[in-house]
Structures are given as structure tokens and as C-alpha cells.
Amino acid sequence: MANKNQYAMLFDATRCIDCRACMVACSVENNIPMDKTRIWVSGIGVSGQYPNLTRSTMVYHCMHCLEPDCASACPVGAWTKREDGPVVYNSEVCIGCRYCMNACPFGVPKFDWDKGIVEGPLIDKCSMCAHRIDDGLEPACVATCPTDALVFGDREELIAEAHGRIAAHPDRYVNHVYGETENGGTSYLVLSHVPFKDLGLPEGIGDEPLNTLSEQYVGNTIPVALTWATVLGAVTAGVHTYKHKNHKAESLVKETAEAAEEEIQ
């Protein structure tokens, strides 16, 4: 089970003003190429009919799942969920199969489509600025957010904080902290004034991590293989014995057997 005392980020959609300081900060901090980004603000924008309008923005990046599907899926184990929260990437081992992109229910990992074999394409995604955490700093996006729409801290405390905000302004929030339980819990938590699906967060993703089933499945590989091999061996032996007895007794499959023998010669 995931470490209880891990870092997380809390995003409060009611506070976000879509200024994109977080995005620029991330680009600079992590030296992201101009045609890429690790973080984006949803473009849902305005909804309703003039003059009864609402507006919602969602800052979207890696959810840092407690039981990350990317990590579960990766054949070479390029993803690691760190004890202290971030899900980080090991570019040295990645083979570029892009299964993590498919496995991530939030569409987070991105790939270098335009790099040839010499440049060596890689996957990229938000690292929770693990390198900054190691230096005792907040992630770059959080650190610069002018309205504290993004805050960083201990996951348990942030969950408490989030529930506190809901309790203080029940009229303002949807009564749920997205990420508290979704997909087994995430280290990116979201508060919202509009339904989470309007923020573009997949609903009905469930509390069971997506990878539970597939991990169970893979876990059964060896026992299934052994059992199956045993069964097949037994069947082969059985059939063989049966057939050859029959052959002698009744010569029912004579031609076939001869043909087989001939082949063996």
C-alpha cells in the first residue's frame, strides 16, 4: 500500500484564474521544448447562455496515482512511485513502446514523435518536480501560482484541508475531493465548483486501481503456465498411449501412423 506520508498537490478550480503562470513555470523549470508541455489548462472555458454563464478551468497534469497504471504497465519498469509521492521516469530503460500512454487513464504521458533513432525519443510527463522536492522546494507550478489555486503538502493534510474548504463553503463546492479515492487514490487532488466531468476528469473511473485486475492476471501467469504444461503433458502421454494401444489392437489409424513414421525417417 502506498505510503501515508507522501506529498501531494491540491488544485482548487474555484481559485484558478487560468493565468497559466504554472504552465510557463513548468516549461522553464523543466526545460520543456516549445512544442510540448507537461501541464495544461483545460480549454472548456465558458458554459451557459448569456448572461447566465459559468466558467471553469482545470489545471491538468500527472495525477501521481498512488498505484500508478503507467508503472504497472511499463514492461521495463521505467516508472517508479517514489515513497514521498512523485511518479518518476527512468529515461535510461524506456523502450518507447508507449503502453504507459495507453494505460494511463488520464492521458498524461507524452511521446517524442519527431525524434529519430539518434536523438532517441522519450516519454515525458510531470515529475512533481521531484528534483525541487529533493532541494526542499515546492514544485515550480505550485510555487508561482498567484492565487494558491495549486498548493503542495502532505497528502493527508491536504485532504483534510480540502474537506475543510468544502465544509466552510458547502454552497461553493461539489462535495467530493477528486483523487482521494479515484483509481486507488492520487497525489493530485482536485476541488471543483462544477461536476468533475465538466473539468474533463474521467468519471466512473472507480476507486479500484485500474491495474488491479491486470496485475492479478499477470500474477497468475506462472501457475497457469505450469498447470497448463502439466495438463498438456498428461494429455499428450495419455493420447499417445491410447492411440498406440488402439493401433496395435485395432489398426484403426494405421495409415496415419505409417505416414508419421515415414515422416520421422
Binding site: 508503472a71 504497472s72 504497465a73 511499463c74 514492461p75 521495463v76 519498469g77 521505467a78 530503460v93 513502446c97 503502453y99 491495474n211 491486470s214 496485475e215 492476471y217 499477470v218 500474477g219
Partner: peptide, 8 residues
């Protein structure tokens, strides 16, 4: 670098 959880 085997990941024994990975179907792939």
C-alpha cells in the same frame, strides 16, 4: 529490466 506486473 523485467517488470513482473506488466502484461506487456
Amino acid at each position: 529490466y523485467q517488470n513482473h506486473h506488466s502484461v506487456l
